[in-house]
Amino acid sequence: MRNLKFFALASLFALGRSSEQHQQPQGDLKPWEVTRLSTYSPSGRPGSSPLAHLWATIANPNSIPAGSGASFEPSKANCTVDWTWSTEEPYGRTVSCTTGNQTAISDSISKWTIEIIKANSNYSSPTEDFDVKFTLTANLTVNGEDYYKVLAGTQHFAVGENMRGTCGGSGLCSWGLMDESNPVLIEPTLVASS
């Protein structure tokens, strides 16, 4: 009887560990890579567009085990955040990114979002000093079983740190990643999974 109880407990532990392995990314995740990030603020002159922009390209180089021998595949996205310069701030809005075509050999579907977060700084412009949060949601169906993982990562961007550019006499400013800072790396963290 004692051996039977031990066997039952050992089986439950093994089953729990097996389930737990599917909940956590296995192995070390490589950092995400931001290969393009630029901002634009308008001049504010009459007749010119009032829109400010942030453009970013992010890539996840990881293939993450999902279960049943399947994996969430690497992915890449282009993100754009637009806002009216004189009347809006871009902070706190989650915006969907464009992922392009998924690979034909995988049933893994990746969705990316971007959110600009206000940095604690002296800069008054949300195009010159800010944090960006990227979120990746990966979905996969294998043999009728649905799997998903949600990962998120945040990075700081600022003129003079990892961005440079120019402001014209009209007030128009344009900033982008410094060549020596490209790519900017972001450590992803697992937020949710099944």
Rank of each mutant, 00 (worst) to 15 (best):
K111W: 08
S11H: 02
W112P: 08
T141S: 13
N182F: 00
S49E: 07
A56G: 14
A192S: 13
L9D: 06
L54A: 06
M163P: 09
T154S: 08
N143W: 08
S194H: 11
S49W: 05
S181K: 05
N101V: 09
L54Y: 01
P65C: 02
L15R: 01
E187L: 07
N120E: 11
T137W: 08
S121R: 00
A8S: 10
C97Y: 07
V159N: 03
I114M: 15
P183A: 01
N62I: 04
P50M: 09
R164S: 15
T103Q: 15
A77I: 02
E115M: 09
G67Y: 06
Q23I: 09
I105T: 14
Q26C: 06
A8M: 06
K118W: 02
P90L: 03
L51D: 12
L185G: 05
V34S: 04
I117M: 06
A104M: 14
G69R: 01
A10K: 02
Q155I: 05
N162W: 04
V150T: 14
Q155E: 12
P50W: 09
T35I: 04
G16I: 00
V95S: 01
R36C: 09
P74N: 03
R164C: 13
S108R: 03
S121T: 13
N120S: 12
I117G: 05
D179Q: 13
P46A: 15
T99A: 11
T87D: 01
V159D: 00
L51H: 11
Q23Y: 12
H156M: 05
A192H: 04
P90C: 07
M163H: 02
G44D: 02
T166S: 15
T99S: 13
F134S: 08
Q24L: 14
G67N: 06
W83V: 00
S108C: 03
E128C: 02
G165D: 04
L12M: 10
T57D: 14
A66M: 01
K118S: 11
R164D: 15
N60W: 03
C97Q: 07
A59M: 09
Q23N: 13
A56D: 09
S174T: 14
H156I: 05
N62P: 05
S18A: 13
T135G: 09
G100C: 06
T154H: 02
L136P: 10
V184F: 00
Y40K: 09
C97M: 01
P183R: 00
S71K: 10
R2Y: 12
F134I: 05
C79F: 05
S124Y: 12
L12Y: 06
M178W: 10
T80P: 02
P31R: 05
N60C: 14
Y123W: 11
P50F: 11
F13M: 11
K76C: 12
V142Y: 03
K133H: 07
L140N: 03
G16V: 04
N139K: 11
E180D: 14
K76S: 13
A152R: 08
C173V: 06
K149I: 15
L140H: 03
F7R: 14
